[in-house]
């Protein structure tokens, strides 16, 4: 199944099971079916539950906050994740505040879906990964599945079981890719293991070539970077026999660090990888949490990779230099060994 199909199917099932589930966003209706085709077919099957709106991101998110407070299960689609900036007030001062500041008298079960990430040449305002901007927003959960997750079932989990706002980050490059959720991937070489859950809707994945051996380095990442990390790990192994494991988070806020602490201890050195800006990024928070909890298990400083501190160029050739690539990962891992 493709990543996009998984989400589309999940939306279909959610609306089918519960008429209080509505999908709200811009240009969702058939035959267009959303900018990334995630809502394809849904408006035909559920004409009352798919609501195409004017270009009013703030009002859309705000209205869905209101719907959620009245017991509906709204799902917002932000056409490009970059436009989340227009919803920041609603997310920061409304959606995530009400439950707490009204002393837990109300819930806001709202899911905001936003496609993030570059690699498609959409340029500076349509290619960013802005989720790390929301790291300090208390009361928000951020879920960002990769192709090694089933994004549809994670979305369903958020919609059905969460009582509080969730920012659900989808990766643009992942949409047309097949999801890889078997126990063995890549013709059996790669072992995919779901790490012991500490929270229902979080699903942290470990990819390894030799699961019984301690790797030299573990890469911790999420979303679209997961596949890039795996390609780098394969290169490192087949070229130089450097064994690298990969931890892939689905929930990146709060960070379910307990789920993968033992994997960090096993590797004793780690590289944190994200697509968003490295400066002020998600990885900084993660690194700090790792240092606070298991400094003594590390034999070298944590390394981080993220986008350069630059807007993302439109030119697909220039873009490659800004966003972390397989080559950059390989180079960083090698530099960590010498």
């Amino acid at each position: 199944m493709l990543y996009v199909e998984s989400i589309n199917n999940a939306l279909y099932n959610l609306m089918d099971l519960d008429s209080d589930v509505v999908l709200v966003g811009e240009d969702l209706h058939d035959p267009y079916g959303g900018a990334f085709k995630v809502s394809k077919g849904l408006s035909t099957s559920f004409p009352n539950q798919v609501i195409s709106t004017p270009i009013s991101e703030q009002a859309i998110v705000g209205a869905c906050v209101g719907m959620a407070m009245r017991g509906m299960k709204p799902i917002v689609e932000i056409m490009f994740g970059d436009f989340i900036t227009l919803c920041v007030d609603q997310i920061v001062n409304h959606a995530t505040k009400y439950h707490w500041m009204y002393n837990e008298q109300v819930n806001v079960p709202l899911v905001i879906r936003a496609p993030m990430g570059g690699g498609r040449g959409y340029g500076p305002t349509h290619s960013q990964s802005l989720e790390s901007m929301f790291m300090p927003v208390s009361g928000l959960k951020i879920c960002a599945p990769s192709i090694f997750h089933d994004p549809g079932s994670l979305l369903s989990e958020c919609v059905i079981n969460e009582n509080h706002p969730v920012l659900f980050i989808e990766n643009k490059l992942s949409y047309p890719k097949k999801i890889q959720i078997e126990e063995k991937l890549n013709g059996g070489n790669i072992h995919r293991k779901v790490l012991e859950k500490k929270n229902n809707s979080s699903e942290t994945i470990l990819l390894s070539l030799y699961p019984d051996e301690n790797p030299e380095i573990v890469i911790i990442t999420y979303g679209g970077m997961a596949e890039t990390a795996l390609n780098a790990a394969l290169d490192l192994f087949f070229e130089d026999e450097i064994l690298v494991n990969i931890i892939i988070l689905s929930v990146i806020r709060p960070i379910p660090i307990k789920e993968f602490l033992s994997e960090i201890k096993r590797a004793e050195s780690c590289l944190i990888l994200e697509e968003g800006n490295k400066l002020g990024g998600w990885g900084g928070e993660l690194a700090s949490q790792i240092y606070e909890t298991c400094f003594n298990s590390l034999v070298m400083p944590i390394q981080r990779l993220g986008s350069d501190d630059s807007p993302i160029p439109s030119s697909i050739y220039l873009e490659k230099n800004v966003i972390p690539s397989k080559e950059k990962i390989v180079k960083t891992v090698k530099s960590m060994r010498s």
Binding site: N189, F237, F238, E239, D240, E241
Partner: peptide
């Protein structure tokens, strides 16, 4: 030939 993979060193 794709059946098994071999590292460069090997």
């Amino acid at each position: 030939t794709n059946e098994f993979k071999i590292t460069k060193k090997a």
